[in-house]
Every structure is written in C-alpha cells, then in structure tokens.
Write a protein that binds this DNA or RNA. Structure first.
Lengths: 130, 130
DNA sequence: AAAATAATAGTAATTGTTATTATTTTATTA
DNA sequence: TAATAAAATAATAACAATTACTATTATTTT
C-alpha cells in the first residue's frame, strides 16, 4: 500500500517560493524565504519537502560543489554556471548537447542515462567589481 | 613570506595510494588504505593533505553529488560516470568537448573558465547483476 | 463527527569536514 | 653534529549540512 500524498500549506508555500525565483536557492535560503509566511516552519520540514518534491520530479536538486545542495524549479535539462568568486549559481542558456550522451555511450560500457554540466568562472557582477 | 612545503611520509603515502588506484576514493577510503601502513594516522591528516594536494594541482577533487568528495590522481581534464545503483565513480574515455566551453562563453555574460561533466546511469557490473 | 493517516514543529542525532593544540618530524643554521 | 626554527602530525573538539525521532496538529476518509 503506497503512502498517499496529503496537502500541506507549507509544501505549497515552498513550491511557490521556488517557482518565483531563478537563483537556485539552498534549503536554508528557502527556509528564510518561507519563514516570512510561516514563522513557525521548521528547517526539517523544508528539507523533507524539497527532497520529496525532487523525488517526485517536481523540482530539481543541484550539487554544484559548494557543500550545500541547491534547488531549481526548472526541471527541464539545462546547464549551470557557478561563480568561483561569489558562489552564485546561474542558468546557462544552452541547449543540452545530446551528442555528449551519445558519445559517452559509445565509449562506455554500462547504461548512460543522463548527464550534468557545470561551468565555472567569474560572473558578470563580480567582473564589474574588479 | 610563503609557507614552504616540508616532506612527510604520510603525505607521500597518500600520494602513492591515489597513484595506485583509479576508483576515485573518498577521504575515508584513503584513510582506510593508509592505515595499513600508518595505523596511527589521523583522518584530519588525510583531509588536510588531500586538500593541500588538490590546491597544489597534484590531484583533483571531485564533487559528484553523493555527499562526499572524491579524489583523483589523474589531473588532466576528463569526464566521469556515476553509477546510480552502486555509487561507483568511473572515468569516461572521452576527450573534453572544447566546444562546450566556447558555446557557453557565447551565450553567457561573465568569464567561463572551466567545466565539469558527470554522466549518470547503471554501470556494467550492476547491469550484469540484474 | 470520528477515525485514520500524513505532515508538522521542535529537537536530537548523524555525517562529512575543518579547526585547535600539544607534540613530533623535518629542515636549517650555528 | 647540536641547536633552532618551521611545518606536520595525532588526537580531539568544533562545525555545518542534513536526516531521524516523536509528540502534536492538519488533512482526508468513513
């Protein structure tokens, strides 16, 4: 018997929060955001729902190497840029290279199903500061 | 005045350990390995040296999304595969796509300096088990 | 409305990693 | 070679991100 999902306003608010931003927030950033509406919400609730939503495929979890996971409302495959200076995670408006997967499958024994690409460097904002 | 590096047999052993394997071990895996030779070595020493070596560019640190960092003796840019089933991290014998960086730079404001690619799927070993 | 079940807040525990410190090694100088 | 300086160590504590636990509350079903 599968556990059925039950509505919760907190989860709804977490979805709304993610839907309204493109900065790939961490769990803690979402927590800060939601607390304006639900001052009593617990950080554990935020984590549980973010993980639940990403398992359901409603959001995407990103691990970009800065120690904390980030979450993205945009579930369509796309690449990301991480600023080595300020840590910002930005979208890269590049169509995923289907070729990459094909080439990888050619040289790799085993089943290749998906891929992620992270670019690193210095973002526009930080460039202007120097 | 820059801090000069001083020899240590522990560090040497850590390098030897990495040089002798291609499985991209975690700090803890290296720790386990080194303890055969230095039963008294501390996990902190392993972490400190792995980070030091990766800052010096002698090894590579990988963040592949499984919560722990991994370390690679091979410092030349190459792509990796992560098995969703057993968690193994394997090399993909694919020349890095210079084109990726170029295309990204075309559409991205800001300085793009490097990129990482991780493929995900089911490795050969796990395929055979099912 | 009552019962069943999922979700929550609050808190404790866990995990991967980094910092601290007294002691030991390694390198340099006398 | 002995004395000194500097860096590395082992052991331990501290830390940050995340997950687990539990009693209570909210949502759904009967």
């Amino acid at each position: 018997m599968m556990k059925t999902l039950k509505y919760s306003r907190q989860r709804e608010s977490i979805k709304d929060c993610l839907a309204g931003r493109t900065d790939h927030p961490t769990a803690d950033m979402v927590y800060t955001c939601i607390r304006r509406q639900f001052p009593q919400i617990s950080l554990g609730t935020v984590y549980r729902n973010l993980n639940l939503l990403s398992e359901l495929g409603e959001i995407q979890k990103l691990t970009c190497g800065d120690g904390k996971d980030r979450f993205d409302w945009n579930t369509s495959p796309h690449y990301h840029f991480v600023c080595r200076n300020c840590g910002a995670v930005l979208d890269v408006a590049l169509e995923p290279f289907g070729e990459l997967l094909i080439k990888a499958q050619e040289v790799f024994e085993g089943q290749v199903e998906s891929h992620t690409v992270f670019f690193y460097g210095c973002c526009q904002k930080c460039m202007n500061l120097t």
